[in-house]
Design a protein around this nucleic acid. Structure first.
Lengths: 167, 167
DNA sequence: GACAATTAGTTAGGTGAGCGAATGATCCGC
DNA sequence: GCGGATCATTCGCTCACCTAACTAATTGTC
């Protein structure tokens, strides 16, 4: 195993704090530098979850979003999910091919627009995903102590805030 | 904007708690279901950081790891970073092509093995990355309140623990 | 010493996830 | 009626992962 890991950064920032008061910018920078590799590695495992669940994490997220807003347009959903339309078209292609989502061109309103719906098969997948305790993330979270789980839960809102408070 | 969002899940799990005591498994499942979409969306933005920084998040992480363990072998680094050797070879190819990392076949020891080193240019990139307050993640963290930033910082260890306590 | 098993790294081919530029169809304001 | 804007799509690209198969070198066993 390689020595020094995230702890090396922690030590550096602690040492820096001992020498000079930090500005909020310094704190944010230090947190960013420690958080980034962790998020990247977690994401790798989340990609692996796809094989366990039958749908990718992104697909699951999109199913949830469409479930909550039936008939949503593709451009609207792309904006909400913070991806470009071509990217979302690709995801919807795959979900449609898997029979989990249906496209319906708006016949009476704006005929450029299509409405997205989760199919019954897609609803089943969603229900299954919500209960899946054995998926990687849930399994790993179960290994944490109550205090650690609480710390992760407490961070969800602030992490969401990183995304939500757009300019 | 689409209504409902992470708050919908929160409400569901709160309602469930009112009706029956939850097991640690239920808590972990609820946290997983709320955390997963947030991590996926954050990762999207982290990918976008690459254009700001000149190296991808993964490349930056690998530079840091090689910097901390000069001469590390590729198989060893792959194990540590929890990727397969072919994946790591691809990353090292790109880093080498960019002049940030050098490969050196072990001439006196095991001639199958190569040692990885960060080049001077790579060290400069690392130094620049550590100071880059304007990168997306650091910028966004600066918009959080002190309490929110503290909550994110407190979650780093538990999030790392999701990765580190392997079987 | 010969050889099978193992290890280190690489190549090939694949999927998933994102992007920008360009496109066609449709809508809207003038 | 027409130009500009919008909606969704296509094309081509990079990045990030994987498995299977491969070559070269090392190690362990007989």
């Amino acid at each position: 195993m390689i020595r020094g890991g995230p702890m090396t950064h922690r030590h550096d920032s602690a040492q820096h704090a001992a020498n000079a008061p930090t500005t909020p910018g310094d704190d944010a920078l230090a947190v960013a530098n420690r958080l980034r590799p962790v998020l990247l590695r977690i994401h790798r495992h989340l990609r692996g979850e796809a094989h366990e669940l039958g749908v990718t994490g992104t697909q699951a997220t999109l199913l949830g979003a469409i479930h909550r807003a039936p008939g949503v347009g593709l451009s609207e959903l792309a904006t909400h999910e913070q991806v470009t339309p071509p990217t979302l078209v690709g995801h919807i292609d795959r979900l449609e091919r898997a029979g989990l989502v249906a496209r319906a061109r708006d016949q009476t309103g704006d005929r450029r627009r299509i409405g997205l719906m989760v199919t019954p098969a897609g609803e089943e997948v969603l229900a299954t995903l919500r209960e899946r305790r054995t998926a990687w993330l849930a399994s790993r979270l179960q290994t944490l102590s109550a205090a650690e789980l609480a710390a992760v839960e407490a961070a969800i809102e602030p992490l969401s805030a990183l995304l939500g408070r757009a300019p």
